[in-house]
Design a protein around this nucleic acid. Structure first.
Lengths: 143, 143
DNA sequence: GTGCCTACTTCCCGTTGGAGAGTTTCTCTC
DNA sequence: GAGAGAAACTCTCCAACGGGAAGTAGGCAC
């Protein structure tokens, strides 16, 4: 496996995995990353949260993420971060200061997924108006 | 609003909406589209399910989608399709044949989102190997 | 009438996610 | 030296969501 180049491996993977099949492992991966908190965490660590447009990816502390992702529960934040770490999308670093400092940073794999989660968030923000307009039409015509 | 060009409207929307805020409507939209069934429905209607690589987007029947999205419950399929219709991402057409035929087809708005959901699915399938490999490392080193 | 077909809808129940309080470890204050 | 405080969880309880299976509606075929 390690003798294959990444491009070859990916081309082969595209043949082997099919997320439409319930039993396919890529379906489970899709389930995991199709999650609001996962998308927002990747966007945050990818640097999209900077007020003046998207900045560079950077490591962030637990409390910083907690503040940024308004409304996330501590339980879900910890849980999501752990599963992303397990899947190799980010690294968790504990620095024994006092109190302890824990930082999270995207890996290369995480950065590659961030490119598309960024698009998702952009899409939602850019097309919000159209969606709201359509909801109004739908609701009025349904009455 | 209708006097603005789409590009202008979107540029303005990017300023106004911020999905990191819990109260922002774009956050609710992000929650909706960050859903495994929504992603798979968009991929299916976008033509990604053709065996010989991605085909053209096309209308599909309820039963066809139900078969394609292995493991989806009827309840969730109906529910997801209705919310996508309400948001203007797809159209629902009832043809009074016997028995009745219901087809779903992506709108232009749906097609624009499909471009990124396709990427999500591709990413999951292409990087599955790396994720599985990392999980193994993680599990062994944690023991 | 009985059965069958598609496309749902309803009901029950197990799993998941949210709210909030408790925990740990150390340091700084009084 | 008792108590407050801070970061990063962890635990407990409860409501909401999703899956499975069974029921429904309308029309035709037998």
């Amino acid at each position: 496996m390690t003798t294959m180049k990444a491009a070859q491996r990916q081309a082969q993977a595209k043949e082997e995995y099919n997320a439409f099949l319930a039993v396919c492992p890529s379906r489970q991966l899709l389930d995991r990353i199709s999650d609001k908190w996962v998308v927002l965490i990747l966007c945050a660590l990818g640097g999209d949260a900077a007020p003046q447009g998207p900045g560079a990816p950077r490591a962030m502390r637990y409390s910083e993420l907690s503040r940024l992702l308004a409304g996330v529960s501590q339980k879900m934040l910890t849980q999501s971060l752990r599963s992303l770490e397990r899947d190799g999308l980010l690294t968790r670093t504990v620095t024994p200061t006092v109190p302890v400092t824990v930082t999270y940073e995207l890996t290369d794999l995480g950065l590659s997924l961030h490119r598309t989660t960024r698009e998702i968030r952009y899409w939602a923000q850019a097309h919000m108006g159209e969606v709201l307009a359509h909801r109004d039409d739908y609701d009025t015509s349904a009455s």
